[in-house]
Design a protein around this nucleic acid. Structure first.
Lengths: 130, 130
DNA sequence: TATTATTTGCAACAATGTTGCGATAAAATT
DNA sequence: AATTTTATCGCAACATTGTTGCAAATAATA
């Protein structure tokens, strides 16, 4: 196992995740960081956090990529097999921790990871009659 | 309903899809088109095809975006609720038409579209022991 | 405190996607 | 078939997103 250092930039990124209830894009993280570090550094920190299983990467239907901190770090083996919801109106992405899809695969496939993203209207936007 | 014109460029793009068994990225389509039209035109054609429900857009876990022609055009209402498989080795994306996930949503969400992408090793790569 | 290995900033680059606008071509109309 | 209408195209320019190499800075370790 490699060692991943705790730098000020990494701590700052983690604090941004801590404060946010929704998944964040690189650009959103950068905006909240206010020049704590370089743009490139954020990419590298995100890469490390994903590798270390602290954050997971979500790619949206529209092609945008977001990141969210995992909130079930107590589990021994960490599998990101929960669903995400992407709101078409406010573009927020939230983890649907309770939603776990069941499916039957054809033979001869080895599944390592799954990405289950639903899109539509989130409760907040649904209530404001869009 | 709007009218979408049949241009030579659009026909050429559709032929590329017809020939391909896997989903294609914008870059892959451009390469196969051999300067039939401009790069920008391909983007616009793809947008139209997606809007017209002739092609669907798939965004992969790694952030790449691909497109595939729908092979069930006979259906009245077209819902892209089948799964896709993305191979980590050869990076091919194929439609898993037989795989339909079942799931239970929390209240207050309106689901319009779902994106279910599994990644791992496809049969072809699994057999060549990667 | 000194060492060493990771991390950072900068610069430069590559890939991807978007927009405006005049020119072109497909479809509809005469 | 010629004309009109309007979607589409090409070009140029730009914006965003992500990557790489390398010297300097910094965290962890001894």
């Amino acid at each position: 196992m490699k060692t991943t250092r705790n730098t000020t930039a990494k701590t700052a990124v983690l604090e941004v995740f801590e404060k946010s209830k929704t998944a964040l894009s690189h650009a959103e993280i950068q905006k909240q960081l206010n020049d704590v570090c370089d743009r490139v550094t954020i990419y590298r920190i995100l890469d490390r956090l994903v590798n270390d299983d602290i954050v997971h990467k979500i790619s949206n239907l529209d092609g945008t990529v977001k990141y969210a901190k995992c909130n079930h770090s107590h589990q021994r083996v960490h599998i990101h097999n929960h669903a995400h919801f992407s709101c078409e109106n406010c573009h927020e992405i939230t983890c649907l921790d309770t939603v776990k899809p069941s499916y039957i695969m054809p033979h001869n496939y080895k599944v390592n990871e799954i990405n289950f993203t639903l899109s539509g209207l989130c409760p907040k936007c649904l209530n404001s009659n869009i």
